[in-house]
């Protein structure tokens, strides 16, 4: 099963997520430059990595969301291909309209770089089925603009439809309703600010992030 990591100018977690996908699936992902207009054939999973694409110019993820490859990513997502956006990847997903809301400057104004305790809210998605509902996991965060915002109607809808995948156990950035990660309506697109690819082996201090990739890749390969 082929996976793809989209590489934008200024991505800096593209290799980390590639290592996670390679370690878990046994096959290295295709690294796809943002200027491409098409994805390689047969891609079963797309990852949008963390980083500071285009130097966060205009708004985080705004320029990347308008890059040529994103039209292909939006098309693939619409056909049901799983897409995971991590950190800057989450920002690109909101800017491209694949996920609702926006990610704003952290309420404390500081860059937050630490381990964060997350509560798994929905463990019935293809991304979270290796976790227990309500389980607390520790995943690193490293962001300046992770303050999730959406209007109350949107937040109510996300909660009502079980589309909040992860919440922060403690609100570290001002996010509405402690939201750390959300799903699209069809359940095949996940955006999250924390970095599961930074916790996939014992040397990382734990492997809670690995379970996300294990569950996801098993589902995608089936």
């Amino acid at each position: 099963m082929k996976t793809a990591v989209i590489v934008f100018p200024g991505s800096n977690c593209d290799r980390d997520v590639a290592v996670a996908l390679r370690d878990v699936s046994g096959t290295a992902p295709a690294m796809v430059w943002h200027g491409e207009s098409e994805l390689p054939d047969g891609i079963g999973l797309i990852a949008l990595p963390g980083g500071f694409s285009y130097g966060d110019y205009l708004r985080c993820g705004a320029i990347s969301a308008r890059s040529p490859i994103m039209q292909a990513v939006v098309g693939a997502a619409g056909r049901g291909t799983p897409v995971i956006g991590i950190c800057n990847g989450f920002q690109v997903l909101t800017e491209s309209g694949l996920l609702p809301g926006a990610l704003m400057r952290n309420s404390g104004l500081n860059f937050v770089c630490r381990d964060a305790a997350l509560t798994v809210e929905n463990n019935r998605s293809i991304f979270t089925d290796r976790y227990q509902a309500g389980e607390t996991i520790r995943i690193p965060v490293a962001h300046h603009d992770g303050n999730y915002f959406a209007d109350d109607d949107t937040l109510d809808r996300l909660e009502g439809e079980g589309r909040v995948a992860f919440r922060y156990a403690e609100n570290i950035n001002g996010s509405a309703r402690n939201i750390a990660g959300i799903l699209n309506g069809a359940g095949n697109v996940l955006g999250m600010m924390p970095h599961p690819e930074r916790r996939i082996e014992a040397a990382h201090g734990g492997d809670e992030g690995r379970r996300l990739f294990e569950g996801l890749l098993e589902t995608v390969a089936a």
Partner: peptide, 9 residues
Amino acid sequence: RKLLANTVI
């Protein structure tokens, strides 16, 4: 609408 502003916020 498409780029300069994010009309969500």
